[in-house]
Nucleic acid binder design. Structure first.
Length: 108
DNA sequence: GAATTGACGTTCT
DNA sequence: AAGAACGCCAATT
């Protein structure tokens, strides 16, 4: 069954995010051809807790750690990003454009 | 089984 | 230009 669902594709792309880089839900969704399904990407991340997906490298289009509450209810997500050399201010990534990893530009 | 919500983003008014 | 509504698919209630 190679026919992977939108859900599964999100996992693959998320796992391909390089170290010290971040991407957005919309970027992944757009890469999969579902620009308007960015919500599903976030929903997939919810299940990613049971996967090997670095969901902490995925933020919204503005670079805000919207899903930090899903990382244990603490600033764990921010700590992980800072651990990779990414500066975070007020739950927002500094120089988001600088660390932004576009799957379309990098992969496709 | 139906209705609502959800880690978002685009499009219309 | 700013604000409101819609769309996507799956899971939860």
């Amino acid at each position: 069954m190679e026919e992977e669902n939108f859900f599964d594709k999100v996992y693959e792309v998320a796992q391909q995010i390089p170290y010290g880089r971040v991407t957005s839900y919309g970027a992944i969704a757009k890469y999969l051809g579902a620009t308007r399904s960015a919500r599903m990407v976030g929903w997939a991340m919810n299940n990613s807790a049971a996967k090997d997906v670095p969901a902490h490298r995925v933020v919204n289009r503005v670079g805000v750690l919207t899903g930090k509450h899903h990382f244990g209810g603490t600033n764990l997500m921010q700590q992980l990003l800072e651990n990779e050399g990414i500066q975070v201010k007020e739950n927002q990534i500094v120089d988001f454009q600088k660390y932004f990893w576009d799957p379309i530009k990098e992969l496709g």
